[in-house]
Design a protein around this nucleic acid. Structure first.
Lengths: 225, 225
DNA sequence: AAGCAGGTTAAGTTATCATTAACTCTATGT
DNA sequence: ACATAGAGTTAATGATAACTTAACCTGCTT
């Protein structure tokens, strides 16, 4: 079975639903974590740092909406995908849910197939490094081996160096702001100085010996041959 | 009224729905373009390069699903947001619609408020560094790459230069007062002399080699070919 | 011709990045 | 647990590109 390397947290107080959804998502290759109420969801989110969270709105302890608000207030969960699940389907609730910062809002009873499609649709949008081997002309970037090839010469990069060049190479030509780089490579909450990025860029340039990273002053860096 | 600088194309064969949605989206600051059938939608999409497209599934000429497939096959529309609108609400259609590459699928009758929330939720996800790619005849201004193309020749502009021409090119023909330019590019609080703008304008004209910025004496500048 | 608006140029100023080296942290093996 | 090596971070310094300013020029308007 294909493994997606993507973590999904599902929070619902009905064990049956939890079970069905977990089964279906696992089958699709997602790593699934479950929570049985609002507080549990917060706890599990903190511990497992999921890529997507499915929240039932009506839950004990804390409602899904409350959980969503608390999560969004933390830097680490600013970008996490969130889907609401609910039996309430009035317009106001839906609008409010989405405005809380959720990415989708699905009415119960929910079909596993529909939920899956919607989850896939959301993941399609957030291009995270997902383990593909990238090839740009004579440069190959292989996230499985943490190795970059330039004309068949293997070059070993350190973790951060690799993640940095991998991020840039996902979208060659596109400029990545220093902030984006920090968020993606270091994590939303980690605080490091600005010069740190420069130094890593330098090491990459040095090791590769090829001029493939362009500086855009005052903006960021981009991968470009 | 706030202007969002985001173009939305709505395609539906029912004039009433078109009208209601257009009214509501315009009110929120979106630039709205409408189409009355599948072929019209394709045509308008090509001409206006919208950021998001709302497609009714049941339309004359070509169905929304067909339109979506044709669009997704073109590189220019790989990243465009697409929402399906439909009276059919069976599970299979919905799943299939999302798998075609759509980002959302909403059942009719659709409430304008809900549509708006969902559109906003989608845009929240795809916030690019600055905005969208502008194309005016043979000139392309790409904020993602910080590059201006004139007839396929890449021209690199400095930050301020780029932001300045980008501002003018958002609304070609419209005159921007010196004050507006200062506010938008430099910021409300920054104080710089009047000649500063001139110098940047000059550099842009010089680098592009094309006469695309017109001076309106005593008023400001405008982008014009 | 005076006055104004903007163009042009070059020189001055600043901000940002590159580079280096030193330091801290982490993982690994003994 | 300790030593060690490599990774990661920071701070200091230097280089340069970006930005701003000032002085002067041109052309138009009244």
């Amino acid at each position: 079975m294909e493994t997606k390397n993507r973590k999904v947290l599902i929070a619902d107080d009905e064990p049956d639903i939890l079970e069905i959804l977990k089964y279906n998502l696992s089958n699709e290759g997602y790593q699934v974590v479950t929570a049985k109420d609002g507080d549990d969801a917060l706890e599990k989110a903190r511990l497992t740092q999921p890529d997507l969270i499915v929240l039932d709105v009506m839950m004990p302890k804390k409602t899904g909406v409350e959980v969503c608000q608390l999560l969004r207030a933390q830097p680490a969960f600013k970008e996490t995908l969130i889907i609401f699940l609910t039996a309430l389907n009035d317009e106001g609730t839906q609008v409010k849910g989405l405005e809380t910062g959720a990415d989708d809002y699905i009415s119960k009873p929910v079909s596993p197939r529909v939920l899956l499609s919607r989850i896939n649709a959301l993941f399609r949008r957030v291009k995270k490094p997902d383990g593909r081997i990238l090839k740009i002309e004579n440069i190959t970037i292989d996230p499985e081996r943490y190795i970059v090839k330039v004309d068949d010469n293997d070059i070993t990069l350190a973790k951060k160096e690799f993640e940095l060049i991998y991020l840039l190479a996902i979208k060659p030509g596109r400029v990545f702001l220093r902030n984006e780089i920090l968020n993606q490579v270091w994590g939303n909450d980690v605080i490091v100085g600005d010069r740190t990025i420069d130094v890593h860029i330098r090491k990459i340039r040095q090791k590769l010996g090829v001029d493939c990273i362009t500086t855009v002053k005052g903006v960021g860096y981009k991968f470009e041959l």
